[in-house]
Design a protein around this nucleic acid. Structure first.
Length: 198
DNA sequence: CCGCGGATAGCA
DNA sequence: GCTATCCGCGGT
């Protein structure tokens, strides 16, 4: 409990924003993971919006509803994690119930628990610790066990951070096989932040 | 820049 | 069973 009081928690209402608005509003927020090993956190500096049934790049394209995508149909603020190859990626479920949209967290700026992050990731430049969706989950200790949790209560939660000076947007990454959807400008980052991905 | 690792889901 | 994937790294 004493841990929590250091953070300004955000309520579940925060996640009711439209998916594109949420993707921008999450920039500058603090992503915190508590574990047995300790606490690690970072400010979110890069996100991507996945717009559900009409978005070919989304797992929920065409309302595909399976064991994996099920949580996307739930309420905003739930945790959607999934594993690709050797990495785990983390998303914030958004949109109304039965509208399977989500925001992928692509990069954070390390804040607390630097030692723990180096231990999990190995020694390297600080700007390389969490500058990618697979890197930050490893550094923060986020895994598929977090699937279905919510982002407004421990052990994995989002707290108030700072308001970015400026936000940039552009094409999403790694979805070359998604037809026209690959060009939609649904990636957002804090302008000039050195901790964003490539 | 290229290739591969080696998890998982989704569909045949 | 087979294939694709919201990636990272280490070798060219």
């Amino acid at each position: 409990m004493k841990e929590i009081q250091r953070y300004e928690l955000i309520g579940k209402e925060f996640f009711q924003l439209s998916t594109l608005e949420l993707a921008k509003a999450l920039l500058g927020c603090l992503l915190v993971k508590e574990s047995k090993e300790g606490v690690a956190s970072g400010y979110i500096v890069e996100t991507e919006a996945y717009m559900g049934p009409l978005d070919r790049a989304a797992h929920s394209y065409n309302n595909r509803r399976t064991k994996r995508t099920e949580v996307m149909f739930g309420e905003a603020g739930l945790v959607y994690t999934y594993v690709m190859h050797t990495h785990c990626l983390v998303n914030v479920v958004s949109g109304e119930i039965d509208r399977p949209e989500a925001v992928l967290i692509r990069a954070v700026e390390p804040f607390e628990g630097l030692e723990l992050m180096y231990k999990r990731r190995g020694m390297m430049k600080e700007t390389n610790l969490t500058s990618g969706p697979g890197k930050l989950t490893k550094a923060l200790g986020i895994s598929r066990e977090d699937y279905g949790r919510n982002f407004y209560e421990p052990p994995l939660f989002i707290a108030k951070g700072y308001t970015p000076d400026s936000i940039s947007s552009g094409k999403r990454i790694g979805i070359e096989n998604s037809g026209e959807a690959k060009d939609y400008p649904w990636r957002f980052w804090i302008t000039d932040n050195p901790f964003r991905s490539r």
